[in-house]
Amino acid sequence: MSSGRMTAKHAVITGGGAGIGRETALLFAAEGAAVAVADVDARAAEATAGEIAAAGGRAIAITVDVADPDSVSAMIAAAEQGLGAVDTLFNNAGVMLSGDNGPEDTEQSVWDRTIAINLTGVFHCCRFGLPALQRAGGGSILNMSSLVAVMGAAVPQLAYTASKGGVLAMTREIAVQYGRRNIRANALLPGPIGTPLTAQLFDTEEKLERRRVHMPMGRFGKAVEVAEVALFLCSDAASYVTGAGYLVDGGIHAAYVTPLDAAEGDAAP
């Protein structure tokens, strides 16, 4: 049952067509928000917006390429026109590209594209979104970072890791600069989440086990579990929370080793 935690909010969610973005759009709408579902995949954005409308919510679909500043500027303008205001930004769109390896074997094109979407894309959304939030009298920004912003990855993914570390640092600075303008800024730092993207990345049992062995809870997170934290951070319940990086990783950051067998408590070597 909805508690109306996002009543009278007007949210833009990038990457809203699938995964965490989709689950967050559905949850925000169920909690009373008007939602602009933005995605590079127009059909995916329209499908999520249609699902919200079918449930009695209010949503519009916007096609956006966050790596293109003109596209992001147009997204914010369309959201303000379609929703009446923008007071909540969830800058969630991101990629993890094939060929993202270590510093010696990651191609320049992979580095550039990853940074363009994951880091510069968030910058574009904040750059064009902040004036809209100020026109609305304030609001909340939530940027998608990652667990790897605070922990190194043994499986090389240098461009992704660097981009997510940059998002966390940028979020802190925005929080400090805009705190007295009634604007909060926080970052989400998920661990491995069961989304279509992770299904592509961990497509064998060996790859899955390489990750699961380090998980105290023994499983990947669910997209809706991240969406619930996003809901808290963007709602008035988090009115005194800004500049934070929220870990949603099932305890991975707290673990040195995890048991081989949880029932017996045997420690992994």
Rank of each mutant, 00 (worst) to 15 (best):
A36R: 03
A59H: 05
G21C: 10
R5F: 00
L26H: 09
V35C: 05
L97D: 08
S98Q: 13
F28R: 03
E23Q: 12
G84W: 13
G57M: 07
A61W: 04
A8E: 15
A45Q: 11
A93N: 04
A77N: 12
V86H: 07
A55D: 13
A59S: 05
A67D: 00
R43L: 12
A49L: 02
Q81M: 05
H10F: 14
V66E: 07
L89R: 09
G17Y: 05
M6I: 10
V72N: 03
A42D: 14
G50A: 03
V64P: 01
G16L: 09
D39K: 08
A74V: 07
Q81L: 13
E23P: 04
E80W: 13
D87A: 02
I52G: 10
Q81H: 13
D68N: 15
L83V: 10
R58D: 09
R22S: 11
G84C: 06
D65W: 02
V95H: 10
L26T: 05
E80K: 10
V35I: 09
E80N: 06
A45T: 06
G57C: 06
G17F: 09
A42P: 03
A49V: 06
A44H: 08
D41T: 07
L83D: 05
L97T: 08
F90V: 13
I20F: 01
M6Y: 00
V40R: 15
S98P: 02
V12M: 06
F90K: 01
F28D: 01
A85Y: 10
Q81D: 14
V86R: 04
E31T: 07
G94A: 15
I52M: 11
A18C: 01
G17R: 01
A74W: 10
F90I: 12
A47E: 15
I76S: 06
A8N: 15
G4W: 07
D70P: 02
G56F: 02
N91K: 10
A38R: 03
L26D: 08
A54V: 07
R5Q: 15
G17H: 06
A53C: 12
A45I: 04
D68I: 09
G84K: 12
A42F: 12
E51H: 06
E31S: 01
A55T: 03
S98R: 14
I13M: 08
A53V: 13
A53K: 13
H10C: 07
G21Q: 07
D87V: 08
S71H: 09
A85I: 04
A30F: 05
A47P: 01
S3A: 11
H10M: 02
V72D: 05
A54W: 00
M75K: 00
G94R: 11
A74S: 14
A85N: 04
A44W: 01
A44Y: 02
G32L: 11
A30I: 00
I76V: 15
R5H: 11
A49R: 04
G16K: 03
V12Q: 07
T24M: 07
G17E: 14
S71W: 11
T48R: 00
G16F: 00
G94W: 04
T88S: 13
R58L: 00
L26K: 13
L83I: 12
A8F: 01
A59D: 11
G84H: 12
I52N: 12
S73A: 15
G17I: 04
T63S: 13
V72F: 09
